[in-house]
Each structure stands twice: as structure tokens, then as C-alpha cells.
Design a protein around this nucleic acid. Structure first.
Length: 274
DNA sequence: CTGAGCTCCTGGGAGC
DNA sequence: TGCTCCCAGGAGCTCA
């Protein structure tokens, strides 16, 4: 479900709710595992610690506590919400974090593809979840024309697959890759090494553009996604190609094509994108 | 090493 | 109404 813009919005909404740095009173698990096993020891480790800040890295949210981080990944259907301790209890509420201010953080995830793990300080950024991630799209010193073109120039796979690879650039998912390729007039089927340096520059610009617009719109809600404040996003109303199979290209009126590439539905305009 | 395909899981929508 | 099939914002793993 959630790509960088959605995770960024969840993070921002949670940060507002946590701005007074509440302590963690208790963490309760209502299921044995998400994508990985939930470690029952987490409660005793972080109990009594304050939540100092929230960090987003790629599609991960890191809750910074006294001597480490709680790492959360939302998978396809995960969401966090903040509610009073006597708030609603929903099916698929798997993690409850009771806070000293009377509020409770609730992790909801029907498909249970998410991740929730404890990263002590000495591990943190070198953990297996984070160590292989590529640059953040908005980090111009690391993610730029030279970097992208150099990486793409040695890859034989489709550009669609390359951009979904979190080692190349972190945070893109299926929706925003489709949208960024449309804005850049590049077919998702194009071999990565055939993307020119000039096109790499366009691509970098459009990846940032589409992500920024999506962040500003609160992310995209297809079905499950909710912001940390419970609201839906609005960017789904601005999709140019994603989910528009058979509809007319907003630029040239050709029919939008659809095909599975790298196991994911891909949408593009055969006339605008070459 | 690389890329394609499978896998974890539930629920919603389409089609019959 | 109800059943079955297919599909979904991710990403690690296996296999050729």
C-alpha cells in the first residue's frame, strides 16, 4: 500500500500527536507475527522510555526512543492511528502502544505484511532492514542525474523494475514509478541502459515532482491507506496513468495500456512514452 | 550476479 | 444472494 508519500504523511501526523514526548507505558501484541515474528521482549525493553522523534527512511518509520529505535514498515495494508485508551478496538489491530499521556498508538494491518522490530542504538542504521537502501529521492547530493544514469547504464532490466528496486532509490513503489515514467515520456518496458543522461535528469526531476505533489495531497488512498490522523489521501484523483487502463491519455488521447512488468501492474501511454 | 516468479495474508470487487 | 476467481501502495527468497 504505502509508498514514500503515504509513509511521510503517517510520520508527520504521528509526530504531531507525539510532540510532547510521551513515555511508553506498555506495548501489547495481538498477533504472533506480521511479516516477521513479533518479539515479546520489546515491551520490557522499551517500557518507560520516551518517544523523542519520528524518522522516515525509505518506507520505514523509526520511533526514536531512549537508546534505540522501534522500526515499523506498513507492508501493503498497514496503518498507525492515535486514539484514547478507551477508543475503538478493530479487527486486525495487531499492536497497541499505551502512552503516558493517556493516548494509544494502534497498528492495524489486515494482510500482516508489515514489520515491527526493535533496533538498539548500536545496530540501528546498520540493521538488515536499512543497510542496503539506496538514496532518498529528495537527497540531491546522492540522488541526482549522474548517480541515476550511472546506475541505469549497467542494468539490463526494464526501467520499471529498476526504479522499484529499493537499493537503487528508496521509497518509490508501483504507483509513483508509473506516474514518474509517464511524466518523463519513458516507457516502463525500456531497458534501463537505454535511458539517456538527459532522460535521467528529467526522471530525477519528475520523481521528486510526483512525490512532492503526492505528499502535499496527503498521499494516495486506493483502499486501505489512512493517514496517522485517520484521514484518507487525495492524490489518487491526480493519477495520470495508474489504474487508468483503457482510458484516454490526458495528454494525447491515446488509450492507456496495461501489462504486468516485474510482477506488478504497469500503465503507460504507448504514444507519449517510448 | 541478475532477473523472473513465488510467497506471505486478507478483503473487496467482478463475473456468473 | 452467494460462490469463485482475481487482484491489491511490498519485498525477501528461491531458482534457473
Amino acid at each position: 500500500m504505502p509508498e514514500l508519500p503515504e509513509v511521510e504523511n503517517v510520520k508527520r501526523d504521528l509526530a504531531i500527536a507525539l510532540k510532547h514526548n510521551p513515555k511508553i507505558n506498555q506495548i501489547l501484541f495481538n498477533t504472533v507475527r506480521l511479516r516477521t515474528k513479533l518479539d515479546a521482549k520489546i515491551n520490557s525493553i522499551v517500557c518507560g522510555m520516551k518517544i523523542w522523534s519520528l524518522i522516515r527512511r525509505a518506507k520505514y518509520i523509526l520511533f526514536e526512543v531512549d537508546n534505540g529505535f522501534l522500526l515499523s514498515h506498513l507492508g501493503m495494508s498497514g496503518s498507525w492511528r492515535v486514539q484514547g485508551s478507551n477508543g475503538d478496538k478493530l479487527k486486525h489491530d495487531h499492536i497497541l502502544i499505551k502512552l503516558s499521556d493517556g493516548n494509544m498508538l494502534v497498528y492495524h494491518d489486515p494482510r500482516r505484511f508489515g514489520v515491527f522490530e526493535w533496533l538498539p542504538n548500536k545496530v540501528s542504521m546498520s540493521s538488515k532492514w536499512l543497510i542496503h537502501l539506496g538514496p532518498e529521492p529528495f537527497d540531491a547530493s546522492e540522488f541526482n542525474t549522474e548517480y541515476l544514469h550511472k546506475k541505469l547504464s549497467v542494468k539490463k532490466n526494464a526501467i520499471k523494475s529498476a526504479l522499484l528496486d529499493q537499493k537503487l532509490v528508496a521509497g518509490l513503489g508501483n504507483i509513483y514509478v508509473n506516474e514518474a515514467l509517464f511524466l518523463s515520456n519513458i516507457s516502463p518496458l525500456r531497458k534501463s541502459f537505454r535511458v539517456t543522461k538527459f532522460e535521467s535528469e528529467i526522471l530525477v526531476k519528475n520523481i521528486r515532482l510526483v512525490l512532492q505533489k503526492a505528499i502535499d495531497s496527503g498521499g494516495s488512498t486506493i483502499r486501505d491507506y489512512r493517514r496517522g490522523n485517520g484521514n484518507t489521501g487525495n492524490f489518487q484523483n491526480q493519477f495520470k496513468v495508474y489504474g487508468r487502463h483503457g482510458l484516454l491519455c490526458l495528454s494525447c488521447k491515446s488509450k492507456i495500456k496495461s501489462k504486468v512488468i516485474a510482477g506488478r501492474s504497469s500503465f503507460w501511454c504507448p504514444k507519449c512514452q517510448k
